[in-house]
Design a protein around this nucleic acid. Structure first.
Lengths: 155, 155
DNA sequence: TATTGTTATACTCTATAACTATA
DNA sequence: TATAGTTATAGAGTATAACAATA
């Protein structure tokens, strides 16, 4: 695989080589996880974003769309059509908030609550597959380091 | 930040909670890195993909577009217009291959070679910024684990 | 037949702007 | 004024299909 003209011997390159960048490796690993997720969850027609929405609504029934956006790091403008799609598919219910009439309160439908455990198991299987080279301890370490990167102090 | 109706006590949820998924945390960390990269390299008008192309052509002068695609995990259909853009901007040269007339051989222009060290330093600064909560040892560990995920055995 | 490189096209995710309704 | 939610729109990245030229 080595190229004849490879500049690997260049001392300046050791620390700035593309392969040595965490950002690049994050992107490649994330892309692989995305592809594997999409294949695994194709039967349920769920992508990482829509699954994340369902999982969080499941974990926090009664959450508002705005709070869901904040927790998932999404813009409400992008959330709206996805929520409409999930509602149309009979997976999410949107009801009026008791006090604040601006808010739409989110919950899984009965059908979605019934399907969710199997979907969670499927996602767990997908994680086991794309992380098969990592030990349990390494997975735990990776989780901690990834959270350190993107999670704010106050979270 | 806790919701009153939080289902965190649910035993089934401990292992399948969205927050506990490495794929989800990979996506969030990668998105943060992408945003920071874009801000940092806005002055050079380079995005992660185009920077990756330049960095790899710099490290392997004379590489073909097909080999660049394989190394970066890109489709040649998506590479073509990006190479055309980089050529138009005077950063990449495409020359005919000596033996194989199908191949276009890639190299950085003199201007790009001159600019590359500063761009590499900028990217290094960006990495230091978004990884500021991680020690040097943790960064090394993270790099190793990310490579384990996406790198094939034969690489 | 397979590979290199290109064009066309569609889909997902993300970003901004503008808007209504309500606090 | 600020927030919740929606619509419209544009951009980047990625996917497949089809093609010409060459091996």
């Amino acid at each position: 695989m080595a190229e004849t003209k490879l500049r690997a011997g260049d001392p300046d390159l050791a620390e700035t080589a593309l392969d040595a960048q965490i950002g690049y490796n994050l992107r490649r690993a994330s892309a692989l996880a995305l592809n594997d997720f999409t294949v695994e969850m194709a039967s349920a027609a769920l992508r990482p974003v829509t699954y994340g929405m369902l999982a969080l609504i499941d974990e926090r029934p009664g959450i508002s769309a705005a709070e869901l956006c904040r927790l998932l790091g999404m813009k409400s403008a992008n959330m709206a059509p996805l929520l409409a799609e999930l509602e149309e598919r009979g997976l999410v219910e949107r009801d009026d908030h008791a006090q604040d009439r601006r808010v739409r309160v989110l919950a899984l439908t009965k059908a979605a609550r019934k399907a969710m455990p199997a979907w969670r198991r499927q996602v767990r299987g997908h994680e086991d597959r794309f992380l098969h080279k990592l030990t349990a301890k390494e997975r735990s370490t990776l989780l901690r380091l990834l959270r350190l990167i993107w999670t704010d102090e106050e979270d």
